[in-house]
């Protein structure tokens, strides 16, 4: 299991946990993140925010925010 910011473009997996304060969790939930949801990395430039795809949408996530999302790698 790795945090989202370590995923390379094309890597996909399932969200196993999300860490953070209540308002962060509630914001990130509202935009589509939830436990056991499939997620795919689209853009990760080692610095700066990442772009992921989940629930049919593209979402930009700050690096710090991405590191709070823990993912189990692998496609179903």
């Amino acid at each position: 299991m790795v945090s989202l910011d370590f995923l390379k473009p094309g890597d996909a997996g399932k969200i196993t946990s999300i860490n953070g304060r209540q308002n962060f969790l509630s914001r990130i939930s509202g935009i589509g993140f939830s436990l056991n949801e499939k997620i795919e990395m689209l853009q990760n430039n080692k610095r700066g925010p990442v772009i992921v795809s989940l629930r049919g949408s593209e979402v930009a996530l700050g690096r710090k925010e991405a590191s709070a999302v823990i993912v189990e790698l692998g496609r179903e």
Partner: peptide, 13 residues
């Protein structure tokens, strides 16, 4: 801005 949560933004099609 207590609601500040860093960048969490949809990139709409």
């Amino acid at each position: 801005d207590e609601d500040y949560t860093g960048l969490i933004m949809e990139l709409p099609p």
